[in-house]
Simulated assay, not measured.
Amino acid sequence: MTTTTPHIVLPRLKKLLEDGIAEDLHAGAQVYASINEDPVADFAIGEARPGVPMQTDTLNLWLSSSKPVTAIAIAQQLEQHNLELDDPVAQHIPAFAQNGKEHITIRHLLTHTAGIRIVPYHYPKDSIERVVQKICKARPEPRWIAGETAGYHLHTAWYLLAYIVQSITGQPYRHYVRDHIFKPLGMNDCYIGMKPETYDRLHDRIAIMSHFDDGGTKGNLTDTESEKAWVSGGRPGGNGYGPMKQLGIFYETLLHGGDHNGARIIEPETVGLFTARHREGLHDKTFQQTIDWGLGFLLDSKRYGEANLHYGYGPLASDDTFGHSGYQSSSAFADPHHGLVVAIVCNGTPGDIPHRTRMFNILKTLYEELNLT
């Protein structure tokens, strides 16, 4: 079943996504793109959950596309002189200094060079506070030089960053991002940790993230990530929910120097600082590719000779493109060279290689159809 909304549709891209539904790569998709804040694509196809059409206002799981929101929350603390990028994490979380971690800084967390990638915890049972306690007791990875050794930190660094924001502001992280990022920008349907009563109200609008195997055959269709405990738990590095059009507003704001319709969340100089190359030319031990990073933002890294990168922005994105992608599902970014913002999610995780191929082709087709080649 495929449905479209009466919004701006790119026919070649729509057909590609429909083919993905037929091939059991995903159940549906949401697409938003704008050039200089003028929408050039805004549509939804397929199903959000069995029998329920995907709509442009469906709340989809962002997974790691959530991470830049935490980065901007830290940027706000930097502007307010509540922290410095080279502050030791232990300056804000004293217990973190255990077991040789006293030299790890906030900058190391934001650039995935801290060396604390793997710390077991149980989500959604463990709160942010409980996860931070476990991270504080952990040891850095052996032979890891903070700031020089690189490897994508899936969750740990983002729990620490969110906890720092909580400690400084006195607000639970999920409330802080709603009050200081989402609501000012009009991202009213976006959450990283939804109140249980809000979940009850919005449940029917939340899409299921379907899971498929690496062979492209329909596998484990589950709604674990749309259950109340998961949605309300608030995992700061991967538990954002909202329509992709509203995530697009976040990137339009950054392209506009931190301002959206008169609502300013950060200053232009801070946008430039956080989206500049702070980690450059380092081999990523998690992704096994050379990938550059800003402060919480993944930067286009085709300059190193490999076009189909983990969390990449396709073969036609400009060198100054910044953003983040989500595990086998989403991509959201800004391409300043073209004034382009893209926010896309496919609600199906088909395996690493099928997804990388899928997103590569999606983004290639989008650029071609917009004549941005």
Rank of each mutant, 00 (worst) to 15 (best):
L254W: 03
H256D: 07
D259T: 15
D259I: 14
G262W: 10
G262L: 06
A263F: 05
A263W: 04
I265T: 07
I265P: 00
E267L: 12
E269D: 12
E269H: 02
V271R: 10
G272M: 14
G272N: 14
L273Y: 00
T275H: 07
A276P: 01
A276M: 02
H278A: 02
E280H: 15
L282M: 13
D284V: 01
K285H: 11
T286A: 15
T286V: 08
F287G: 08
Q288T: 00
Q289A: 09
T290Y: 05
T290E: 07
T290W: 04
I291P: 07
D292P: 08
W293F: 10
L295I: 03
L295K: 09
L295T: 04
G296W: 12
G296M: 01
L299A: 09
E306A: 11
A307M: 09
A307Q: 13
N308R: 14
N308G: 04
L309I: 13
L309R: 15
Y311C: 11
G312T: 12
Y313P: 07
P315D: 01
L316Q: 13
L316C: 06
A317R: 10
S318K: 08
D319S: 15
D320C: 09
F322Q: 02
G323R: 12
G323I: 09
G323H: 01
G323N: 04
S325W: 03
S325T: 14
Q328N: 10
Q328F: 14
A332Q: 11
A332K: 06
A332M: 09
F333K: 04
F333G: 02
D335H: 10
G339N: 03
L340P: 07
L340R: 08
V341G: 09
I344E: 04
V345R: 03
V345P: 06
V345C: 11
C346M: 15
G348V: 05
T349N: 05
P350K: 04
G351T: 13
G351H: 10
D352E: 13
D352I: 07
D352L: 12
I353N: 10
H355R: 06
R356Y: 00
R356D: 03
R356T: 00
T357C: 04
M359K: 14
F360S: 04
F360T: 07
I362L: 04
T365R: 13
T365E: 06
L366F: 15
